[in-house]
């Protein structure tokens, strides 16, 4: 369950951490170039963004039937992705679903970075009681399996809409970013420049925001892209369970949910949104991995 991987993908467990040996091997090897895969990923994401921007210019509206139900993909023009069980254009629904994905991936991540980051800085600077208390809350949130917590939040925030799901996801991102920021900021706060700043009498606010923050923000942002992919999968999973974005509003996971019982007769209607979601998540992962290896400078690598 990819949502569940939040912790791993955030590099909080060992799996996300490059060993010094590996990092050395990679540095010795090729200088990192932007490969073909990177450009393909950038191209695909630009295409998705273009869909969001130009969704309204498409000939068909996403919530009105345009023709027969279950037209297979690649048969007609301009509805070259076919139609769903109500005869609505799959192309228009994919484009409008891209907007949903954009909302659920950017807003919760921004919120998680702001709140989680702030708490992380506070706890890294003050340690002691503040750290213990915030840790307890973070651990309590992480004690629930993420999808279950999301389900519980979704059942409390009613009626379901893109925005209630966004709120639920936002709550979910905070502990991960908190731990990441804290770990990075603690590592920084032992370095000489922070010690010097403290010795010169800098106030806590200055040290947190002018010394610690600029030196942790690149790492945090490089993880943000990967968390965006996780958010898209989370919204998809929730909609796949039938408790996500309700029907006339399109979402890629919801399109799969509505058509999954027609898998044998109309596989195209299921696999088109699956493919779009896969390509988007894959592109975000490619870009995130590259940013991470570029910006995630750990002390051992210096």
């Amino acid at each position: 369950m990819s949502l569940v991987e939040t912790e791993n993908s955030l590099g909080l467990t060992e799996s996300g951490v490059e060993t010094p040996a590996e990092a050395a091997a990679e540095r010795k090897g090729k200088k990192k170039r932007a490969g073909l895969l990177w450009w393909l990923a950038v191209t695909w994401l630009s295409l998705v963004l273009a869909m969001v921007v130009f969704a309204d210019l498409l000939p068909a509206e996403y919530d009105r039937p345009v023709g027969d139900a279950h037209l297979p993909p690649f048969q007609s023009w301009p509805e070259f992705l076919g139609t769903d069980y109500l005869g609505r254009s799959t192309l228009s629904r994919i484009a409008a679903g891209a907007r949903t994905s954009l909302i659920v991936s950017t807003i919760p991540v921004a919120f998680g970075i702001l709140l989680g980051g702030l708490l992380g800085l506070v706890s890294a600077y003050f340690r002691g009681t503040a750290e213990t208390v915030i840790d307890i809350f973070a651990d309590a949130l992480l004690a629930f399996p993420p999808l279950l917590l999301l389900l519980m939040l979704a059942s409390v925030l009613k009626p379901p809409s893109v925005w209630t799901i966004t709120i639920g996801l936002a709550v979910l991102t905070v502990p991960g970013f908190y731990r990441l920021t804290k770990a990075n900021a603690i590592a920084q706060s032992k370095r000489e420049y922070v010690v010097v700043a403290k010795a010169m009498g800098a106030r806590p606010g200055r040290i947190m925001f002018k010394e610690l923050m600029p030196n942790t923000v690149a790492t945090i942002l490089s993880y943000a892209v990967i968390v965006m992919a996780i958010m898209i999968v989370a919204e998809g999973s929730l909609s796949f369970l039938g408790v996500g974005v309700p029907d006339p509003e399109p979402s890629w996971g919801g399109m799969v949910y509505k058509e999954k019982d027609n898998l044998e007769t109309y596989p195209g209607q299921v696999f088109v949104p699956c493919a779009v979601l896969f390509l988007t998540v894959f592109s975000l992962n490619v870009i995130g991995d590259r940013l991470r290896s570029k910006f995630d400078v750990r002390d051992s690598n210096l």
Partner: peptide, 18 residues
């Protein structure tokens, strides 16, 4: 493995059933 990482369980369920 990076390809597999991008396939959420709900998609692999459907694919395998298919």
């Amino acid at each position: 493995s990076s390809g597999l990482l991008a396939i959420p369980p709900f998609i692999s369920s459907i694919l395998l059933v298919y």
